[in-house]
Design a protein around this nucleic acid. Structure first.
Lengths: 348, 348
DNA sequence: CTGAAAGCGCTTACAG
DNA sequence: CTGAAAGCGCTTACAG
């Protein structure tokens, strides 16, 4: 058996990892055969296969991805792109759960995740350029607000992409993965009605986000179902933040002091609403039942713990990765809507 | 002026971005000259420089990083590596702040960040292999617990690396960036003493983490400073979690019911301690002063808001990136210890 | 200051 | 099933 050609490595010289050439020499085959083994071992004799694998193990060979990328025109990596201002994103526990899930799902395929945040327009341009240049094979896009210009640009560049949540105001069809916001909201509001509440208010999210729109639709639909008249005074809007929820609840208390339940479109806002209710001297759930949305960690630390709607983040992330990889492989994939789950705790 | 050679692009054929060859053709120079412009424009005549830049703009040329990497043996990217079990990491607001800061600092240098999490041993092996193969130019390592095997392996592979927080139990010197835990703790305990507290307890972090050890040292040193005898009954340990802080506080209340202050080694644990104190009927800061550590978002939502020690996360992340890039450039860089800041609110 | 040429480490038709 | 060879898009001495 031939020893691998030792590359010179004077002290100070950075060590060079073994190449396919070294593996071929040790295994006694051509580089083409080594490459075929790397590609799955088709059209390779058992003897060659074994020799190559032994050589790979012996040398600790790892493929040079840059070289592979250069010929395959694939990077073997995927971008996780945030188009929200960063602060917001990193404060939202939903999003960190999503990031964690996507990293894990991609690791399964030995694909690294590039984290990119496009907070302002200059960054959006820089990143669009980067992505359009083919530095990644696809993009996992998180953008909750309507009219994101990057989506259109990425589509024009024909970069495989899947969004988290339905992208609002998009002409073309962009595949996405989302929880069933409307059904989730309906489950919650039905629960409120069935438990005897009659003056049910809602704190909706921003109306340029899919969750803001859909959860409000769900609320209205259940009211219709039960023949309850819709009352504008029972609707307030928040920005998904704690402070926003607190202010919205205070407004509701002023316009509709007789409310006996509030469906809040996020747990963070629900936490804020709890504070406002508390300050107004209303007990929860005695005087007012409160339902949240997300089942975020915050839902467990509020007093009382929040009854809420669980979003299946683990599945959302794994489905996003699945759709993206399929798209990269050239298979068109339909959008996926995942069911939510009503989690009953103490607040409603 | 010569038009760029249009590459055939039948419908369905993926579009190929322009290459250095196209730029050279449009600019009327050789590919070598285009490359020189890309490298900074040294040894290039003003006329050529201008022609090349115009061609680049006209074609929307972006360098192919895979091709560049192949020859430079540099990837132009950096890994952000987590060796903690993922769940913990993503729950800790300090860490998400760190991740955000590093992404932003690297973006400045047009370097993407690869997010990798090595939760178990299999993942550690896979990732060590990946990194040792030279797929990144350096590693930003977050690992708070003693005796992380990856650090040693990465050192052996001679991969540039900087840790967040002092890596405990490392033979060789690994450069790191950290807040001055001990001084921060001393500031807090001094504040407690100066405000008239005499039975000052502490809830320390795990003793296999630098923050756990150093903050406890700081506590003891200030006691010595003031000639206060150290009392073991005034020390409890937690795991940096809310629940851990609550349990530790309950234990302290049992062993030292006369305590009038607690220095807690993290805000999350302090939040838990507040709950325990509350349940025991102690008022804060009336009966017991509580000091935290981190100045995390949670410090603002506790009741009362937490007096705490701010860690300079923005600077920690930018310094980590600075050290790493210098190391990649071949310049040895010393460890950096950053000052903390006492933030006085209502709890102490 | 500039061009021609070698070479980075792979993959992939193409012959055989 | 296998090897020889071309080529992916760059960078970098080397001459001039």
């Amino acid at each position: 058996m031939t020893e691998p050609a030792h590359r010179g490595r004077a002290s100070g010289t950075p060590r060079r990892p073994p190449t396919i050439h070294d593996v071929a020499a040790v295994a006694g085959v051509s580089r083409g055969t080594v490459s075929r083994v790397l590609q799955g071992g088709h059209n390779v004799s058992p003897a060659s296969l074994e020799a190559v694998n032994a050589a790979i193990a012996k040398l600790g060979y790892v493929v040079n991805r840059a070289a592979r990328s250069l010929v395959t025109q694939r990077s073997g990596s995927v971008a996780f792109l945030l188009t929200e201002p960063q602060e917001r994103f990193f404060e939202d526990p939903n999003f960190t759960t999503l990031l964690r899930g996507c990293t894990a799902a991609l690791a399964t395929h030995d694909m690294p995740l590039l984290l990119m945040t496009a907070g302002d327009e200059a960054e959006q341009r820089r990143i669009t350029r980067y992505l359009a240049a083919g530095h990644v094979d696809g993009v996992l896009l998180v953008s909750s607000h309507r009219g994101n210009p990057m989506i259109e640009q990425l589509r024009e560049a024909e970069i495989p992409m899947v969004c988290c949540g339905k992208p609002l105001g998009q002409r073309g069809r962009v595949p996405y993965v989302a929880a069933d916001d409307r059904e989730g909201a309906k489950d919650m509001v039905r629960h409120l009605v069935e438990s005897g509440r009659s003056r049910i208010a809602t704190i909706a999210g921003p109306q340029d986000t899919p969750g803001g729109v859909e959860r409000l639709y769900g609320y209205r639909e259940v009211l219709d179902e039960y023949g309850i008249a819709f009352d504008e005074r029972l609707v307030a809007y928040g920005d998904y933040s704690r402070a926003g929820g607190e202010e919205a609840a205070a407004r509701l208390l002023a316009t509709a002091p007789d409310l006996d339940a509030v469906f809040v479109a996020s747990d963070l806002m629900a936490d804020g609403a709890l504070t406002a209710l508390h300050q107004a001297g209303r007990s929860v759930p005695g005087d007012v039942a409160v339902g949240g949305f997300d089942d975020s960690p915050a839902a467990l630390t509020t007093r009382p713990p929040l009854t809420t709607v669980r979003q299946p983040w683990d599945r959302i992330s794994s489905e996003m990765v699945r759709l993206l990889l399929a798209q990269i492989a050239g298979e068109a994939q339909p959008t996926v809507i995942l069911p939510t789950e009503l989690v009953i705790r103490e607040s409603a």
